[in-house]
Design a protein around this nucleic acid. Structure first.
Length: 635
RNA sequence: GCCGAUGUGGCUCAGUGGCAGAGCAGCUGAUUCGUAAUCAGCAGGUCGCCGGUUCAAAUCCGGCCAUCGGCUCCA
């Protein structure tokens, strides 16, 4: 007999060799039915596994993240099965579960199109209906290789060959389908209820652009139709928040064929952008920064000295002036170096914080451009901090605080990543080690959780990245802090220390917004275009009900204008409902409805975009309210 | 850059070889109205660009450009 302890602390005895699925059914038939997968001794286990020693058992359902992954992974097998039935010559690559579903990469003569989706889904439903048990088989390495060679699955063979020597190689089968897979899986295909194929994409085998490109089908699955519908609805809602769509609707910005990746900011977008920049300047003054502006085009010599010529050339734009080579800056740091070198510096000035709203141009590959999120010209809210080695930790912590101040004001959740030395890097391993440890220590001391990105640092130093989420939960790097021992060396930066001798300062590069453009993209999606009053391109729109109130409306608009509010007035001969509708669609925080009553009382009827009709109040009262809202930067 | 899809008026979209359409927006007129669309009329298009097939091309073919979804790459 073996003793099985359950999550609730109770224990049960079963004869040795009882399968996990039998035990699950015995414990609670309903739980077993809803169960997707099981943890035996906190490790994923197969339903058919026979228990031969004591242990703990936990049944996971779809609501559990691990359960969800197993469910989707099994769904991927079913999709691959359907595709193999329809196009038998298809070769299988990999098919993992992902955040909101799963995908499978195929190598097929047949080029998949969205029209195939219905066909594949129908075939998947047949497989589900047949309720094939999903059975695990263990093979030796040699058997596995021979098996997949025999079935012409070259990608699987490659995967097996890369598995560690001692790996247990298993194959999961259901019906006439088999796939190399560590598992586990749901007990049978019938467990999968609602499936939907989502999209097609090309994907390089093993993510390497030198490898063949496979065809990837993205799909998702849920245990209930209602859950799938809910998911699809949310997706539709999220698409309405797309900053590219809202940017057009709200007249914020435009990207035109004449300048792919070079966004135009329209008057409304500019109003928003200027407010963000004002706020930024205010905060940076308070945090002890001095602002500079360096030129956009600088001589080739500078870029050779900075290392960009060697390490960043593919991303740069070039031009010639009077027969001399110049480059359009892809980064602001070399310019800042030159500014630093304008003067002799004393340790007493440190930490010296120089900030710059710097417009940089980078040649990004055409396929990666994405609205304001990924462009070829963007403004970094950059800063370069020069300091003594012993000031590093505090300065990094200071920047982390500033970033948090910004992001929490906007209510953005974020996650942090630490990127280490890339292959193509300048400087010694020792320097990188010291720099990376400094960043790590600052994060640890702040108690911030972070993910490590090996080899993802800048060519001159390691970095801490702050990632924000867009409406579809894609993440975008915004803030970053980079420690740099290389540039001060390259540019021979010095300061005079207490001892009267020259020393090398340490430098930090950092951005908060990251790029104003990207940040506005994120902000637009996060607020669905309903920007807080302090940022709203139009804060108030005045709506006279009839021609009789036009004079009064003009007066009100003028007074608001004089109080520095961004105001519009709608004098068209439309019904008030129509004007309100348009104001709402433009997400204007406040609409002031002016009829005879308001004119009479020198008042305004206030309608808030979220709270609706707030009733009538005196104009001064309204002004005071909005002033407070703007001053406090209320969200 | 790679794979796939898409490109028709300012916007959203219909139009599968035979006269380029609709709704919204715009303009003009009427209407003067109290919290999410008043009515009528008018105007607006090299059908992404270049080439080819055809008596005839938005429509079929080729090339290019851009956009979208991914991959790779990045703020």
């Amino acid at each position: 007999m073996v003793s099985i302890s359950l999550k609730d602390g109770s224990k049960r005895e079963y004869p040795e060799g009882t399968s996990i699925s039998q035990i699950a059914k015995d414990i609670n038939p309903k739980l077993a039915r809803n169960g997707v997968t099981v943890l035996f001794n906190n490790k994923l286990a197969d339903w058919n596994e026979q228990v031969s020693n004591d242990g703990s058992l936990e049944i996971l359902d779809f609501d559990d993240d691990i359960g969800k992954d197993v469910y989707r992974h099994s769904s991927a097998h079913i999709m691959a099965h359907a595709v193999k039935r329809l196009w038998p010559e298809t070769k299988l690559a990999i098919g993992p579960a992902i955040d909101k579903g799963f995908y499978y990469d195929f190598d097929s003569e047949h080029v998949f199109t969205p029209e195939d989706f219905a066909l594949i889904e129908k075939e998947m439903e047949k497989i589900i209906k047949a309720d094939y048990p999903m059975v695990k088989k263990t093979l030796s390495r040699q058997e596995a290789i021979e098996f997949f060679i025999k079935h012409n699955e070259e990608y699987k063979v490659e995967l097996i060959k890369d598995l560690p020597e001692d790996a247990i190689i298993s194959v999961y089968e259901h019906g006439d389908f088999f796939d190399l897979c560590a598992g586990p899986h749901v007990p049978s295909t019938g467990k999968i209820k609602s499936i939907k194929l989502m999209s097609l994409a090309g994907a390089y085998w093993r993510g390497n652009e030198n490898n063949p490109m496979l065809q990837r089908i993205y799909a998702t699955s849920f245990p209930k139709k209602a859950m799938l519908d809910d998911y699809l609805n949310k997706l539709e809602e999220a698409k309405k928040r797309d900053h590219r769509k809202l940017g057009k609707e709200l007249g914020l910005f435009a990207v035109m064929d004449e300048g792919p990746g070079f966004p135009f900011f329209l008057p409304k977008g500019m109003a928003l952008r200027n407010e963000l920049e004002n706020f930024w300047r205010e905060e940076h003054r308070k945090a002890g920064y001095q602002e500079i502006k360096s030129p956009i085009i600088l001589n080739r010599d500078l870029w050779e000295r900075s290392g960009h010529w060697d390490h960043y050339k593919e991303n740069m734009y070039f031009t010639k002036i009077d027969e001399q080579d110049y480059a359009v800056k892809p980064m602001n740091c070399p310019g800042s170096m030159l500014v630093y070198k304008q003067n002799l510096h004393s340790y007493k000035e440190f930490p010296l914080r120089m900030c710059e709203m710097g417009l940089v141009h980078r040649h990004e590959m055409s396929g990666v451009l994405h609205g304001l999120m990924r462009v070829r010209a963007f403004t970094q809210d950059d800063a370069h901090l020069f300091m003594l080695p012993e000031q590093i930790i505090d300065e990094i912590k200071g920047v982390i605080n500033l970033i948090d101040r910004f992001y929490s004001l906007f209510g953005f959740p974020y996650h942090v990543e630490l990127s280490t030395k890339p292959e193509k890097a300048m400087g010694s391993d020792e320097d990188w080690e010291i720099a990376t440890n400094a960043l790590r220590r600052a994060l640890d001391e702040k108690g911030i959780a972070y993910k490590i990105n090996e080899g993802d640092g800048a060519f001159y130093g390691p970095k801490i990245d702050f990632h924000l989420h867009d409406a579809l939960d894609r993440t975008w790097q915004c803030g970053t802090i980079q420690l740099d021992f290389q540039m001060p060396e390259k540019f021979d930066l010095t300061y005079i220390g207490e001892d009267g001798e020259k020393h090398r300062p340490v430098m930090i590069h950092r951005v908060i917004y990251g790029s104003i453009e990207r940040f506005i993209g994120i902000l637009t999606e996060h607020t669905a275009g309903a920007f807080p009053s302090w940022l709203a391109p139009v804060q108030v729109r005045v709506l006279p009900i009839t021609d009789r109130q036009h004079d009064y409306a003009k007066q009100v608009a003028e007074i608001l204008q004089n109080h520095n509010f961004r105001v519009e007035a709608d004098y068209r001969s439309e019904k008030i409902g129509y004007k309100i509708r348009e104001g709402q669609l433009q997400k204007i925080p406040y609409l002031l409805i002016l009829g005879d009553k308001e004119t009479e009382a020198q008042a305004v009827a206030v309608r808030h975009r979220k709270d609706g009709d707030k009733g009538s109040m005196g104009l001064n009262e309204f002004i005071e309210m909005l002033q407070n809202e703007v001053k406090n930067r209320t969200i």
